[in-house]
Amino acid sequence: MTDSLTSRPPTFYDEVVAETLGLAENLKTCLQCGTCSGSCPSGPDMDYSPRTIFAMIDAGMKDEVLRSNTSWYCVSCYYCTVRCPQEIPITDLMYSLKRMSIQAGHYQEADLDKAPEFSETFMNFVENNGRSFELGIATRYHLRYHPLGAIKLATGMGLKLFTKGRMDITPTKIKNISQLKSILNKAKELGGAA
């Protein structure tokens, strides 16, 4: 970055807080102590540490935050949340950043674009069947995005799971799928994009 930072536009911070449940306004009280980033199991893979992300949110660096891979590397282990000395719901904030990144159309620029793709494949199955379906999700996800991975899957672990009777060939469908679809369609109307 060649430009120096200008004053903090407050809107991005407010957007992030509004998108998050629980005590998200505690984000204001971040002490920049780094407990979250020190606790993070996938922290070393992130381009910005969670603490840095919070400083960037405060500085209004919306594009940089939503393009970063930080939230996509979150494994949802909640260590940051229980250890944060200011009781900031960090794991939930990471989920908010994921959603905002998709909505802003930025996620493909993060170097972990597989993550949203996996989530979307997974949920397509759930939306259509009511249940998830490992084999279907994995093959479709890999065929669509990572064909090499699909071959590995079919010959390696997938095969093992299959022979152990731990993988279905066809998905299970719930009885009242139309009810679920009505609920989810209504929820999507109320909940914005995606």
Binding site: S37, C40, S49, Y79
Partner: peptide, 28 residues
């Protein structure tokens, strides 16, 4: 963040390991 005696590599074996973020570098 935490103090552990579970090493991940030979340099850590038999030691206590302090895990933290070096916040001035932004690195774990």
């Amino acid at each position: 963040a935490e103090i552990t005696d579970v090493g991940r590599n030979p340099a850590e074996e038999g030691k206590l390991i302090i895990q933290s973020e070096n916040t001035l570098l932004g690195k774990q």
